[in-house]
Design a protein around this nucleic acid. Structure first.
Lengths: 157, 157
DNA sequence: CAATGTATCTTGTTTTTCGAGATACTCGAA
DNA sequence: TTCGAGTATCTCGAAAAACAAGATACATTG
């Protein structure tokens, strides 16, 4: 694609910061749009997405990850469970713990991804890049995600 | 950086999707962490960030962008205004409209970016990439942000 | 086995969001 | 000009979600 002729490192950093922020607000918007699409509130949808990505988690882990109070997570899971989207299991080793996992038949709705035409848009977007470039992008996404996760994990309070 | 020797396009797409989702959840977490850091609720903080990025907006535009009811935006702006973070101005041409903009002395707190060591982490992250690679990343971020914005803007309901 | 720590749930309260209407303004056509 | 339809914001009461503190049950260490 090599669009701009060659911006300085400094300029590139600024561009990345600016466009990264734009992407972030876009993501929030999209998450909201998707959640109303499946008739879930944003928190519930985010939790559902989290379980899809990370696999089964305990309520405590969810509470940490989503920065919600434990009581909030309890009723959040109640709501998802009532809709048949997730299931609570007892932890085999530690019976204080509970394991929350996705319900098998994918509940009633959102298997995500394909919804809203996101997949198509993304495919179109990526057509323009070479494999080497996609490699760079994938690498950056993985590292940036890792960095952000560590950032908000450490010393949150 | 050229880490993996060469993944297929298909594999790369999947990696991007997966890591993109991870990045998204990381962003939400971080946004939440930053908002508690400046003692603002997530919506208020997001609105503040939005105004920083996009410049002055009307309540109606904010409501569309954040997918909130107009009434919710009114009290949201009330809260930000009470903290001295934003200012309401009348629109010069259309006096039904109101323009919300950042208060000049940056209110009491968050000039963002530097907070939480985000800047440092990002600098460290980007050190490993060549300028050509950064170019690719910046390009992708811009296009992806654009795509997401259009996606959630069209046919939201 | 007692004491302390951990994980989740319960309850009551506060905060945020919604939704429907009210008010104020704009613009085009009679 | 005046009327009417459309738009933008705000007001208000009701619903929903999040919190905080305590209760319960289990685990782990001495």
């Amino acid at each position: 694609m090599d669009s701009a002729p060659g911006r300085s490192r400094e300029t590139l950093y600024l561009a990345i910061q600016r466009d990264g922020q734009r992407l972030a607000t876009g993501l929030i918007r999209l998450l909201h749009a998707m959640s109303v699409g499946v008739d879930l509130n944003p928190s519930d949808f985010q939790c559902y997405a989290l379980l899809r990505i990370e696999g089964p988690m305990t309520p405590g882990e969810i509470s940490q990850s989503m920065k919600l109070a434990t009581g909030s997570v309890t009723v959040l899971i109640d709501r998802l469970e009532a809709r048949g989207l997730v299931i609570r299991d007892r932890h085999p080793d530690d019976r204080r713990k509970v394991i929350v996992r996705l319900a098998e038949p994918s509940g009633d709705i959102p298997t995500d991804g394909a919804a809203l035409g996101i997949r198509d848009v993304m495919l179109t977007l990526h057509d323009r890049y070479s494999e080497a470039e996609l490699e760079v992008i994938a690498d950056w996404l993985a590292r940036a995600g890792q960095a952000l996760t560590e950032l908000s994990a450490r010393e949150p309070r």
